[in-house]
Structures are given as structure tokens and as C-alpha cells.
Design a protein around this nucleic acid. Sequence first.
DNA 1: CTAGTTGCAAAGAGTTTGCATGGCG
DNA 2: CGCCATGCAAACTCTTTGCAACTAG
Lengths: 137, 137
Amino acid sequence: MTRPSGYNTKQREAILHYIISRDNTHVTAAQIIRYFEKEALPIGKATIYRHLDKLTESGALRRYITDGLSGACYQYIGSDDDDAHLHLKCDRCGELVHLECDALGDLERHVLDEHAFHINATKTVLYGTCDDCLQKA
Amino acid sequence: MTRPSGYNTKQREAILHYIISRDNTHVTAAQIIRYFEKEALPIGKATIYRHLDKLTESGALRRYITDGLSGACYQYIGSDDDDAHLHLKCDRCGELVHLECDALGDLERHVLDEHAFHINATKTVLYGTCDDCLQKA
DNA sequence: CTAGTTGCAAAGAGTTTGCATGGCG
DNA sequence: CGCCATGCAAACTCTTTGCAACTAG
């Protein structure tokens, strides 16, 4: 778990700090790249992608799968990991909503029992339409 | 609905026919491109993408959102549309499983009532690990 | 000192677009 | 004949890789 796996560089610190500061939000690689372009400490995007990969592998970050055309989303994971909540993404405005409740419970059980498939809520994003966009339509 | 929206060309026919012939399976743009490269009637990939977009917009195809790095998936929709079933994707072997049952029902209702969000099962892919991969681990 | 790290630029994968030619209706 | 469709290549977006210079431990 606590893989030393690498040096503790300024860039690594800065990237992790930035993502942690966003805590409950998701961050895209593009956002991070843009952020550091405007900062005093410019970080090459290759470095950012490399850290995103490493941090995800080491378990410090979670990578969400969303529609590939706008890039992947990352989020920092606190010390306790079992806060596996679902995400909903609106297919109109692109808003990503965090579901804090345990709504997946029954479905998860059903799929495991009947279909021998273990759902990983942390990676799953449900698509649909949010209230705002429905009202506009 | 029945938008004439375009001519009835050989390419359009061939592409739609190919996807329909896969009926219950999903097809990626890359598969279609590869298929027609090897056929007697070569179709440029621009044409394939353009038709994929049009067919999706007109409702003849459904586009699934999967991890962007391997491309989107498409599937033909028969005349009756209400067969909105879920998909499960194994994050180890990449297998995409079709769930024929109505397992989403309760969750869908809960999310709509409590979170004012209308889930679109046809676009949603649940991630997790399939039985085969679990056994190997 | 030595192995991991950085940054640039080039390479890749997937998808979109511009433009001249070709084909449906 | 007019408009849409086609195909090629170039453009684009997101991500990865090669490589020489650099730095943490």
C-alpha cells in the first residue's frame, strides 16, 4: 500500500496538493494542465499524466470512466476508502453529480447473485438527464 | 422520426447492414473500419463516422459510453425501442455483458425521486469484475 | 553517485473537418 | 441539375513515449 515507489519531488507535491484541494470534486487532466500553465511553477503535461497514472495505481486517486471525448476524471481518495459512492452524469450539460447514498445496494446484490458480476461502484458512472436540463426541455 | 435526411447510398446500406447483422452485439467504429478495409467495397472512415453519427441521431443506433481510450460502441436498435437494458463491463478482460433483466428498476426510481435525475439505462455501463476474472485472481 | 524524474517534442489512437469529386433523386 | 455523400488527407484532442538533462536520497 504505502509503496515508496519514487522520489518526493516538487511537481509530485504540487499535483497531489492541487487534487486534494479539490477534495470532493473530480478533476480532469486538462484542468490540471491548464492550472499549472498559469502558475509560477509550470509542469509539463507528460509529468502530469505520469503522476496521475502512478497515483491511481498506488490507490491515492480514483479514475472515473466518462465519455472519452472530454478526458478522464480523477478524484483524491481520503485515508478510508470505503466511501464507494455512485456518480451520475448528465448527458446534456455534462454535470457530474455525486450520490452519497447507498442506492446501488440492491442492484449490486442482484447482479452478483444472478449474473456473477461484481460491480465496482467507484468506477461506474450512470448516464441520464439532470433536473435542470429536463426543465429546459 | 422518419427523417428522410439523406440519400440511400451503397455505403449507408452496407454500414447499416453490417451493424444489424451483429444485432445483439455491440460494434466499435474501429471494427467497422477494419471490416470494410477487407471488403470489396472499401469505405473511408470519415464516411463511417458520419453515418454512425447520423444513425445515432436518427435513433437507429444507440451509442454506448465506454472508456474513451478504446473508442465508442454502437448497437442497432430494432423497431421497438423499449428494450432498455443495462451493460456491465469487466475492467480486467474488457468483456461487455448485456443484462436483459430489469435490475435497474428500483435504483432508477430512487434516483429520480430522491435526486431528481433521470437515468438513461441505454447509455449507462456499470464497471466491475466478471466471474472469470475473479476466479483467476 | 545512481536511479527515478522532468520537459520538450514527436508519436499514437480515435475522431472530425475541408474540399474537390461523384452519385442520388 | 442541385444537393447530399464520399474519400482523402490534414487537423484536432487526449494521452503516451523517447531521450537528454536534472535532482532527490
